[in-house]
Amino acid sequence: MEKSELQFGAASESHCGRCNPNSILGGIFSVLAAGFLFYVVPTHIEIPAHMQHPLLSPRFLPQLAGWLVLALSILLMIDGLVKPPKRTETDEFRRGVPIVRQLLMVAAGVVYVLFFEQLGAIGSGVLACVLLFLASGLRNLWVYALAIVFPAVVTLLFIYVLNVPLPPGTLWESLSLI
């Protein structure tokens, strides 16, 4: 679900002139809601063998919410067509953002999601912080020292003071095994 909404984020920007964002938003949400109601609910919510009352069905609330979203998205779509919202200007800072900046942010996210256990809390923290500092084009070397100190100190605080076991990193452990 998240994916299609992401794509939409880009779509609305470019179509801002001809169609209005509310109609598109309503359209997309109604398609998603319909997909949810007629595909996801029947296939991914089991109905128990024995049920005392239809109100007790595991499908009741998801369907209620699904229909709510469907109805309101259609309303939003129609509302947008009948009474287009005033165009708001895009923030000047949102234009002409270097693609590298955005890619580095995504890379930092990927480091955390995929390599958190492998690199450990300190390792991935340092790497992600460096990537994000690079994204902002920081030149000061002291700042990069900060990117090493902070994750290390915070991780150790989490582990020893708060007793929260953050991963030490399986990569380092296997390296030391050689």
Binding site: I159, P168, S176
Partner: peptide
């Protein structure tokens, strides 16, 4: 395991040099 992780990682790195043999 999380106890003394820092020192463990450190010793592990040191050990890894020796542990080859």
């Amino acid at each position: 395991m999380m106890k003394l992780m820092k020192s463990r990682v450190k010793t592990k790195i040191l050990c890894s040099l020796a542990a080859v043999s």
